[in-house]
Amino acid sequence: MPTGREVATSDPAAGPAAEDPAEELAKRLLEAIRARTPIAPLTADHPELTLEDAYRIQDRIVRALGGREAAKLGLTSAAKQRQMHVDAPLWGWLAPGSRLLPGEPLAVSELIHPRVEPEIAFVLGRDLAGPATIAHVLAATERVVPALDVLDSRFHGYRFTLADVVADDASAARYALGGPGAAVEGLDLRLVGCRFVRNGKTVATAAGAAVLGHPAAAVAWLATELARRGERLRAGTTVLAGALTEAVAVDPGDRVAAVFDRLGTVELICA
């Protein structure tokens, strides 16, 4: 099992708690996760929340949930960035235990309103420090594998600002990896085709370029951002590079699959 656990940066809890709303806002989100009940966006009563504040809240949540097992990127499509009025993606961390093992059903009742999206996951064979380019990412990648990212925004109706969704750990909830996957040599990841299927019906098709023009560009962006914080992606880390299609909502009994050209298939059964 790959683990990307490392680097606790500076400890935000060391500051004067009374002046830092991060603690209280993180508690709100953790309570929403525990109670499976959506809440209002944090920016509703904290409109001043910056992106840096949001990542500090995220750090607290990730620590409370047991740390970093895999990384994930969000807002990696031009369409979603336009919709959110931003020009960069965002990242979050998937906690230990959030990976659904092959055959393990997704328990929908454990979540608020889960949505699933197909992604290409990079399994790093070497440390990846930033600043990084697509070439650095490909050189550090052991395999690329089919993935399904299960989102579960802690906010009502998936309505949030950029700061809200960053604080909410990029809506991270569960994920599944499939196979067999492939080494990146000789693959043009921009043109790897993907068929997204729900209950036997193709709901969308796409190719890797839907992720920032090249899925490795999303991983390079993450490595570069982490470098600014004195962090790096470690060998063995899995990075879900961002959605190739729109997410679909799932209910108990649904079966969702993503079929990737050359990489294989990943499936999820909802219970």
């Binding site: 921009r190 043109l191 085709g193 993907c194 796409a206 190719a207 370029a209 839907a210 050209d261």
Partner: peptide, 18 residues
């Protein structure tokens, strides 16, 4: 399953599979 990428003026416009 082959993937296709469509660009307009060099910007990605859409993607699809066969």
């Amino acid at each position: 399953d082959v993937g296709a990428a469509l660009t307009v003026g060099g910007e990605l416009a859409d993607t699809a599979a066969g």
